[in-house]
Nucleic acid binder design. Sequence first.
DNA 1: TGGCCCCAAACTGCATGCAATTGGAGCGCG
DNA 2: CGCGCTCCAATTGCATGCAGTTTGGGGCCA
Lengths: 252, 252
Amino acid sequence: MAARTSSKTSESSDKVSVICRALRRAIIEQALEPGAKLPEDALGERFGVSRTIARHALGQLAAEGLVELRRNRIAVVATPSWQEARDAFDIRIELERLVVRQLAGKLTKAQIAELNAHVDAEDRARGGTDAVSIRLATEFHILLAHMTNSPILVRYVSEVAYRCCLTLSLYSRPHSTECAINEHRAIISALAKGDEAKVMDLMHHHLDSVANRALVAPTPQRGRDLLDILAPYADEVTSDRVVKLPKVARRG
Amino acid sequence: MAARTSSKTSESSDKVSVICRALRRAIIEQALEPGAKLPEDALGERFGVSRTIARHALGQLAAEGLVELRRNRIAVVATPSWQEARDAFDIRIELERLVVRQLAGKLTKAQIAELNAHVDAEDRARGGTDAVSIRLATEFHILLAHMTNSPILVRYVSEVAYRCCLTLSLYSRPHSTECAINEHRAIISALAKGDEAKVMDLMHHHLDSVANRALVAPTPQRGRDLLDILAPYADEVTSDRVVKLPKVARRG
DNA sequence: TGGCCCCAAACTGCATGCAATTGGAGCGCG
DNA sequence: CGCGCTCCAATTGCATGCAGTTTGGGGCCA
């Protein structure tokens, strides 16, 4: 039996959704770097909508973890800590193992062709920018998730994959995408053969190696932000106005 | 080393967040059944805020999958299909295995005490309503997730657990909570002993049995809603105004 | 009785306006 | 030169208003 067919989980065409999609893409392509400010008016003006709508969109993206929203402060693109990045990859591994487990041996010829076509596109994009390569690689995984036709799984895989994308811009060394592409091909092939155990293993190691290539070393003090380092100490403080830091290394 | 300590992932105290929490709780306690209407004005009036805020809250809950939002229509509490319910449980199993894997052997005495205290509370609540038992059982799992101190994991486990709660009100037979409580105790004990493999297995079977007790039979036609049954047929129709059904069994 | 149409009420989609909060530039002082 | 203070522009939090869409019920006709 083929993996379940069709569905219309596509985001509706609200103005809100349009802005969300645009911002999501800008973020994962690193046009908007972590920490970048996202003022409501500016967004509204840029997209030709009112602040209300921009605000709502930011709320949605915050729910996805791509944007950080602090009361009375300008929204910024999320800056996950190194630990959060690692956690995201751990979760992603489990979710995507689930994806390929459900898919193994159940793909139609058309679906396999679609996957191959996508990887071909990744191949052709090797000359282009890193950002595009990363986006395409991510979309491969999301495409897989879609084929399970489980809306929930699609949502979670997408979200966590986007978050991982985000961390790449923070902690990644310039990386070679070639092996990733080969690993994608291997996964397709194992899926087609229906070798469930093998494909789960392939996916596991694929993501693990991406994570290891990307998240260079725990480097205890390499946290981008002084505030992160001090966070655990601040926990002890009961006052609401925690500690007045001298102004250093303000991002933005 | 103890599982990572503390964090402040608690939702901020916006009016929006307040409404979200209230609705979430009402939904998982089944005060609001799946399909229940949630008009913006009514919510706004009830909580003493404007429609704008109520609307924003609904947006957040929709992002969590607890509410269904269709353009120009009244928001309703989500009505997951049987398949979606099953998918949610599958995801939940993987996520919670991850939780206990991270926690095995790393809990402080205080944390173990906290877990035991919670299960004691579950025990005491056995006399009360089903809704409360279900909520407490769910909160046990979320408490575990919190102890990983991974905000992402907390978010996903919470969300998926709430979704599972939601499905219980749809497909569950009146169930005995006793075995679940015992299973919770067994999990705590295995966590304390640090038996990683065992606790992962316990969690797996615990959730699997909850799912099997809850999701009674695929019962092909027992779907609550005629529209769900007809959905695959509607896929063939190209017209936008799909099929004009005679008015039957309108929920609401 | 049963089906169809039309219209008013109900409701959502979105923009705008006002009050409250923030942060950072400018200024004075040690 | 650095530190702290004040004050104002920038920005958010939220309510309200208007226009467009959906709902559902009464009346009309068969």
